[in-house]
Simulated assay, not measured.
Amino acid sequence: MTTPQSGGPLADLSAAGVSLWLDDLSRQRLHSGNLADLIKDKHIVGVTTNPSIFAAALKDGESYQEQAGQLAAQKASVDDAVRAITTDDVRDACDLFADVFASSGHVDGRVSIEVDPRLAHDTENTIAQAKELAKIVDRPNVLIKIPATVEGLPAITAVLAEGISVNVTLIFSLERYTAVIDAYLDGIEQAKANGHAVAEIHSVASFFVSRVDSEIDKRLKAIGSPEASSLLGKAAIANARLAYQLYEQKFSGERWEALAADGANAQRPLWASTGVKDPAYDDTQYVVELVAPHTVNTAPEKTIDAVADHGVIRGDTIAGTYGASSAVFSSLEAVGVDIDDVFAVLETEGVEKFEQSWAELLETVQQSLAEPGTENQ
Rank of each mutant, 00 (worst) to 15 (best):
S214P: 02
K135C: 11
K218C: 03
L170H: 14
S210K: 01
S214N: 13
S368Q: 14
I156E: 14
K353E: 14
S225A: 11
V82W: 06
T169D: 15
D305M: 12
L332R: 07
A370P: 07
V328E: 11
S331G: 10
D217K: 11
G253A: 05
P269V: 11
V337E: 10
N125I: 02
I201D: 00
A197V: 06
T2Y: 09
V307Y: 03
S32F: 00
A102D: 14
T284S: 06
I113L: 06
A197M: 05
E254T: 13
N376Y: 15
R314P: 02
D95Q: 11
L71I: 09
A272D: 08
G350A: 11
S225V: 12
Q267K: 01
R83I: 10
D24A: 02
D41H: 12
A93H: 09
S112M: 03
L71C: 10
T48C: 03
H121L: 10
C94Y: 02
E227Q: 15
I304S: 00
S32I: 05
D12L: 08
S330M: 15
E132P: 03
H196I: 07
L35F: 02
T303W: 00
A243C: 11
A73K: 12
K234T: 15
L259A: 08
L20Y: 04
F208H: 06
T48R: 01
L71S: 11
D88S: 05
I53Q: 07
F172V: 02
E257H: 10
